[in-house]
Amino acid sequence: MNKKKVISLIVRYSVYGLVALFFFWAISNNYFGYIFSESSTFLLLVKQHMQLVLVSSALALLVAIPGGILVTRKSFRRAEWVVSNTVNLGQTIPSLAVLALMISILGIGFQTAVFALFIYSLLPMYRNTVAGIDSIDENLIDAARGMGMKPVQILFRIELPNAAYSILAGVRTAIVLNIGTAALAYVVGGGGLGVWIFTGIQLFDNGYLISGAIPVTLLAIFVDYLLRLLERRIVPEGSRPPQEL
């Protein structure tokens, strides 16, 4: 084995070690206790969290991807500039503020949180859809038109498959981000695992804190992993970028 490989393995196992150490420390202090002692609350919070993410992501998907497709049509090209800049500007507003501002419009509760999360998920999905379609070689579309493909056929057979990699990456980014932002839903009374995290911070109760924070983190990492697997299945082999990490 060469030296470079050894260094890499040392780094990898040190990180594993640190993570293990963290869990050992947390478990020996019984910081995960609430997950078991208040398991029904825990399950409720997990369920709420997933609902927040699922509903808002699904809505964002239904709006952002068709929206991205629409603005890349020839007749809507002019609108693209306006839409893209509006969405970009929207993204500089902190997620916490988007949530907070929704209170004054929609009051407190689940819908408010869903709506804010929905708004916040639009950008990555929309931006990657547009970028994916825009990056397709002009000549491909020309060839497709030249052989008599109808616009709908070009969209579904050429544009979307070749943009799939970018679009799905956007969806994954949005959903993973969404899992984290959903932890802030607590501030608008939207429930979810954020409830325990904030309780923990406010009461200086490490048990609540860790019992909320670690499951959210694992959820995000796990969903990220799942979606990467899904990407690998969906994206046509020929249109994947040459190297992926």
């Binding site: 070689d137 000549n139 491909l140 020309d142 052989m147 070749n162 799939a164 046509p236 020929g238 249109s239």
Partner: peptide, 18 residues
């Protein structure tokens, strides 16, 4: 019309996803 006319371009225009 286009389906009855073959069309070949310099950058071959092969679809990478197929």
């Amino acid at each position: 019309l286009r389906r009855k006319i073959g069309y070949v371009i310099q950058s071959n225009g092969l679809f990478p996803n197929m």
